[in-house]
């Protein structure tokens, strides 16, 4: 068994182990397909934790769509307004969506080995706001379902909530709350790291709700899982945060004009 499990001894960890296995599984499984499909590429394993097509019971699939819907509607309104006032933002949004998708293929080193990550969504939320990002996130997930056979159509709502809504919302809230009150690097770091962490926590909550532990029940598996999961995910989130700070610093040095055009304050 994995040595990590020994560290978790003494806690009931049904869903925690599930999540770990999912992460390892997707790395092992997805990386293999991708490498053989595209030997020259950096392994394009996508964001490493989506709920697969058919994994959620119909009721939960629908519930998560209903949760995502208001964000999509507001986001779509904002995009329509943005495009009406600044026509060039149409292409910019499309390119940003593609950037988010491609960035998810970039691997970063972490304590648990190299890993892919949803950096793009945190960055996107800082640039465009959380509602617009929920629409872009939904589109990115659609692309992943159709181009990478990863994620799915019935689970699009659930995956949008974790990756396209909760993550960006966390990043954006921290960005707004801490701006001009803390050093920029700290703000960016926390926004990216916590957005990353909360994305995974949301996915685990979604799974725990749909399939509660037979011994612990929903609430028990919730709490235990949250604790364990946060512990295993923190190193990854830290790498994520560091990477986003490096990206942001590089952008501040070389792309100040672009950032100003996008309305990033402090640039």
């Amino acid at each position: 068994m994995n040595p990590r499990i020994h560290r978790l001894r003494g806690i009931r960890v049904g869903w925690g182990v599930l999540a770990l296995l999912m992460m390892m599984g997707i790395h092992a499984a997805q990386a293999r397909v991708v490498e053989s499909a595209n030997p020259t590429a950096l392994g394009q394993d996508p964001l490493n934790m989506h709920i697969m097509e058919g994994f959620l019971p119909p009721m939960w699939a629908i519930i998560w769509f209903v949760v995502a819907l208001p964000f999509w509607i507001i986001g779509l309104r904002q995009i329509t307004r943005l495009v009406a006032t600044k026509p060039e933002s149409r292409l910019l949004l499309g390119v940003s969506g593609a950037f988010t998708f491609v960035l998810s293929a970039l691997k970063i080193p972490s304590v648990t080995g190299s890993s892919s990550h949803p950096t793009g969504t945190g960055l996107g939320a800082i640039l465009f706001g959380p509602f617009v990002m929920s629409v872009l996130g939904g589109l990115v997930l659609l692309f992943q379902a159709l181009l990478l056979a990863h994620g799915g159509l019935t689970t699009l709502g659930a995956n949008t909530v974790s990756m396209g809504i909760v993550g960006p919302l966390v990043a954006w809230t921290i960005w707004k709350a801490m701006q001009n009150r803390a050093p920029l690097w700290l703000t960016v770091f926390l926004a990216a790291a916590l957005a990353d962490l909360m994305t995974y926590v949301t996915t685990s909550v979604q799974l725990a709700l749909a399939y509660p532990d037979p011994m612990g029940g929903v609430v028990a598996s919730f709490v235990e899982f949250g604790t364990v999961f946060a512990i295993t995910q923190i190193p990854l989130a830290i790498s994520e945060g560091i990477l986003t700070v490096i990206i942001f610093n590089a952008l501040m040095q070389t792309a100040v004009n672009e950032l100003r055009t996008l309305g990033v304050q402090g640039a």
């Binding site: 292409l91 499309g94 970039l106 190299s114 950096t119 990477l243 490096i246 952008l251 070389t254 792309a255």
Partner: peptide, 28 residues
């Protein structure tokens, strides 16, 4: 090294962003 990898990834992502941005304005 791990440190270099982190730095290179950051550089790569930021250059990619600038490239994407400039492409979108050229395409516009």
């Amino acid at each position: 090294t791990r440190r270099a990898a982190l730095r290179s990834s950051g550089l790569l992502a930021s250059r990619l962003f600038v490239d994407a941005y400039q492409r979108s304005t050229r395409m516009q």
